[in-house]
């Protein structure tokens, strides 16, 4: 086909069909949060001592950390969903990472060494490794769907970022259920659980985020 013909075709397509659009990121994010919240309410629920736990720093820190990870990952993933997105936004992810490292260092300083191992292993690692990926499945699907409507230049990276943001949303709600609050536990098991979603996102992204 001649390029002139193609241009005429595209032009008439633009005239007759509504222009392509993508669901807004705000709406997608709200849906992701609701999906993970419903998953928590419908399955394991919040821990029995939730009201007293919120008064402890360690418990609250889990929400701060996962919320900041979700926020920064979302900024990076919405940015990289456009062809002209600024890749330096990936640097934002250093913030939650630094926060996690800082919390571990603090915990090691205030906690006697004899307790380190017990706090790190905790009691809920098996549920942590299964529930976070499960809570994150809905958000992951939503983020991948929204990315597919756009134009990411690196499908695999985009998928991985979707997985990371989904893991953060899932972990935020899982944190309300889990009774292991030590940063040593969080730094060990949450990243492992997140890695499952990140790898899933990368593999799926590599396949379906091409355009």
């Amino acid at each position: 086909m001649q390029t002139d013909q193609l241009i005429a075709q595209l032009q008439s397509d633009a005239a007759t069909k509504p222009r392509p659009s993508a669901v807004g990121w705000g709406f997608i994010t709200i849906c992701a949060v609701v999906a993970a919240g419903l998953a928590l309410a419908a399955t394991v629920g919040v821990r029995p001592d939730f009201s007293t736990a919120v008064e402890t720093v360690r418990f609250d820190f889990k929400f701060l950390l996962t919320a900041i990870l979700a926020g920064t990952a979302l900024v990076a993933l919405t940015e990289l969903a456009r062809p002209t997105g600024d890749r330096r936004k990936l640097g934002l992810l250093l913030l939650p990472f630094a926060l996690l490292v800082g919390s571990v260092v603090t915990e090691l300083a205030v906690l006697p060494a004899s307790l380190w191992e017990a706090r790190m292993v905790g009691t809920n690692y098996a549920s942590c490794l299964t529930v976070i990926p499960l809570f994150g499945l809905g958000p992951l699907s939503l983020f991948i769907y929204a990315s597919r409507k756009r134009a990411p230049l690196r499908p695999m990276l985009q998928g991985a970022l979707c997985g990371l943001a989904a893991a953060a949303v899932g972990a935020f709600f899982y944190a309300a259920h889990c009774t292991d609050d030590s940063p040593l536990f969080v730094a060990t098991w949450y990243p492992l659980a997140s890695a499952i979603l990140v790898v899933t996102g990368a593999v799926v992204g590599q396949r379906i985020l091409r355009w």
Binding site: T3, P20, S21, A22, P83, T84, R150, A151, W211
Partner: peptide
């Protein structure tokens, strides 16, 4: 290749700010 790019530009024109 020019034509493939034009088609992509058309399909993704909403990603231009």
């Amino acid at each position: 290749l020019v034509q493939e790019i034009l088609m992509a530009v058309h399909a993704k024109r909403h990603t231009w700010r």
